[in-house]
């Protein structure tokens, strides 16, 4: 996902438009109430404006650091380990039907994912 279509260089004012807030909410799978859009524009904008200070640096040649752990853990044996019993998994699910976890219709009129 890195860098595909033109990579933005955020402006000093990093506020998001209402449409951008709605798009991010849709990517994050979060329903937004109408009043929330404006509030999030302000709150996210303030943080992104603070994050502007990362834009001024010359970071050419600096390798990204994704984890501080500089050692490799031992490899696990490639053997099956214990798994949770089906009943334990069912007990956690909000809705079940017999041996299945119940979800709304995925395909057809009401489908959506």
């Amino acid at each position: 996902m890195s860098g595909s279509p033109p990579s933005h260089t955020p402006d000093a004012d990093s506020s998001l438009t209402a449409a951008q807030v709605r798009k991010v909410a849709s990517l994050a799978k979060l329903e937004l109430a109408d009043g929330e859009v404006e509030r999030l524009r302000g709150e996210l904008g303030a943080i992104l404006t603070h994050a502007q200070r990362l834009q001024a640096l010359n970071l050419d040649g600096v390798e990204p650091l994704t984890t501080p752990l500089e050692m490799t853990g031992p490899m696990a044996e490639d053997v099956p380990s214990g798994v949770l019993a089906t009943e334990a998994l069912h007990a956690m699910a909000p809705a079940t039907d017999g041996a299945f976890i119940k979800v709304p219709k995925v395909l057809g009129d009401g489908g959506g994912a």
Binding site: M1, P5, S7, H8, T9, A51, L54, L59, P64
Partner: peptide, 30 residues
């Protein structure tokens, strides 16, 4: 709010400017 911020920082077109740069700065801080 934090899920939204993180989703935006990882989203197409913003990844390099936000998440990517933050990871490089992380190396400098270390």
């Amino acid at each position: 709010k934090r899920i939204m911020l993180g989703t935006h920082a990882l989203s197409s077109g913003y990844y390099d400017a936000y998440y990517g740069r933050a990871l490089k700065v992380r190396r400098l801080i270390k």
